[in-house]
Amino acid sequence: MKKALQYLISLAVASVLVWFTFKNIDLHTLWEKIKQADYRWVALSAVLALVAHWSRAYRWVLMLEPMGYRPSVFRTTLAVLVGYGANLIFPRAGEVARCGTLNKLEGIPFEKSFGAVIAERLIDVLVLLVLIFLNLILEFDRLKEVFFNFFGEKFKNPLLIGAYAVIGILLLITAYFVFKKNQTKIEQNAFYQKIAKVIGGFASGFLSVRNLKNPTAFLFHTALIWVMYFIMTYVLFFALPETANLSPIAALTIFVMGTIGMAAPTQGGIGSYHFLVGSIVVLYGLSQQDGITLATFLHAMQGMVFVAIFGIIAFLLTLILPNRGINT
């Protein structure tokens, strides 16, 4: 029931954003421009996307090694692709789907691989923060009004924020002392023991990044993933005449905003991606119509078509591949 409610709320948010973004857009013109795009650039972007997904899978393998697992990079890539496909249906379900798929194909315990996924997601957040900071430095004059207007409302009342922080800290302290007082009784509870085992597995996977056997390869693939993400976005600009002259810095801005949009809790970033990218593109001289056209084209190719095709193929392959069991 709770998951169904979350799904409906996510769908409602996406629907509102789609309506708000497209309400003044000529959909016939948008469709005609997308049909006339140069799809050779789309093919190149698809190849770059596969490189990025393979690199993400390889990095995942590197994170599983310290725990004694060395799964096939090919099968791990399939698990990654299945996970991305699952995100099109249920937001944030991709991590669960990819770990479940890897368990099916390689027998690696779910909680172990999931812990590694949590660690890699945190690393990706750090990379994104670096990109946001770099983007603000390079495009400060252009972006300052947008960001200050947005964040200004959030931090309008610092006293209220401080009060919330104090209340949160007090609640955590209270919870800690309640736990310590009843620790022995709580630890004997079967449900607690089950949760503790799962959390232990998560922690093992999460902390595996500290014991990497090849940290140089890990850093290389982290960089490669994000470089491929950027280039696969940038090359799609050349598919549309209206955006072919946008600079790499403009592409960085659009890429960063699009990444934030894709991270929003909506199905495959629908609505949130279009709103953020469509809004930011006008800063580079494009009309609202052309901005939404670009956002729709980028999202359709990268966030829907590539993910759906790769995800379906990967899922079908997982149905015929045998389980190799735990690979240590």
Rank of each mutant, 00 (worst) to 15 (best):
Ala43Arg: 07
Ala244Ile: 07
Ile312Phe: 11
Ile118Thr: 08
Leu27Cys: 00
Ile249Gly: 01
Phe20Pro: 02
Ala93Gly: 03
Gln193Tyr: 01
Ala308Lys: 02
Trp54Pro: 00
Leu8Val: 15
Val16Ile: 15
Ile309Pro: 13
Met67Gln: 04
Ala239His: 03
Gly285Ile: 09
Asn327His: 14
Gly162Asn: 10
Lys185Cys: 00
Leu143Trp: 04
Arg75Tyr: 09
Val130Trp: 12
Val117Phe: 06
Phe297Ile: 08
Arg40Val: 00
Val61His: 09
Ile320Pro: 00
Ala263His: 02
Leu136Ser: 04
Thr29Tyr: 04
Thr296Pro: 05
Pro158Lys: 07
Ile173Lys: 11
His274Ala: 12
Ala217Lys: 09
Leu236His: 08
Phe306Leu: 15
Arg92Val: 12
Glu139Trp: 00
Arg92Leu: 12
Pro248Gln: 10
Val42Ala: 14
Leu207Gln: 06
Phe148Asn: 12
Leu160His: 10
Trp226Gln: 03
Thr318Gly: 10
Ala57Val: 04
Leu50Tyr: 09
Gly107Asp: 05
Ala308Pro: 06
Phe177Leu: 11
Tyr273Ile: 06
Tyr284Asn: 04
Asp38Arg: 12
Arg40Trp: 15
Asn245Cys: 00
Ile199Tyr: 11
Ser279Gln: 02
Asn214Met: 07
Met67Arg: 03
Ala93Asn: 03
Gly268Phe: 09
Trp226Glu: 06
Glu242Cys: 10
Phe238Trp: 02
Phe150Trp: 13
Tyr229Asn: 05
Phe237Asn: 02
Val61Lys: 14
Ile169Trp: 05
Ile9Cys: 11
Val305Asn: 00
Val146Thr: 15
Phe218Tyr: 15
Leu298Asp: 04
Ser72Asn: 07
Ala52Glu: 04
Thr101His: 10
Leu105Phe: 06
Tyr164Arg: 02
Val307Pro: 05
Leu129Gln: 06
Ile118Ser: 05
Val80His: 03
Leu64Lys: 03
Leu64Cys: 06
Val61Met: 06
Asn214Ala: 10
Ile225Lys: 07
Ala79Asn: 10
Leu131Arg: 03
Leu240His: 08
Lys185Gln: 15
Thr259Tyr: 03
Ala93Ile: 01
Glu32Val: 09
Phe20Gly: 00
Glu95Arg: 07
Arg324Trp: 07
Gly258Lys: 06
Ile249Met: 14
Pro265Glu: 08
Arg210Thr: 13
Phe202Val: 03
Glu32Arg: 12
Thr318Tyr: 08
Leu172His: 02
Lys104Ser: 14
Leu81Asp: 05
Ala52Ser: 12
Ser208Tyr: 01
Tyr273Lys: 05
Ala93Glu: 00
Ala4Tyr: 15
Lys112Trp: 09
Leu207Tyr: 08
Gly285Asn: 12
Phe218Ala: 13
Leu134Phe: 12
Thr222Glu: 02
Leu81Cys: 14
Gln183Asn: 11
Gln193Trp: 03
Lys154Asn: 03
Thr101Val: 13
Phe110Leu: 14
Phe206Lys: 10
Leu294Thr: 14
Lys194Gln: 13
Glu242Thr: 12
Arg56Gln: 05
Ile89Ser: 15
Ser72Ala: 09
Ala250Ile: 13
Val209Pro: 01
Arg98Pro: 11
Ile123Leu: 11
Thr266Tyr: 08
Pro71Arg: 02
Tyr284Ile: 08
Ile199Gln: 00
Arg70Lys: 15
Ala263Gln: 04
Leu143Thr: 14
Phe297Lys: 04
Ala190Gln: 04
Asn157Ser: 13
Leu30Thr: 11
Thr76Phe: 01
Leu81His: 09
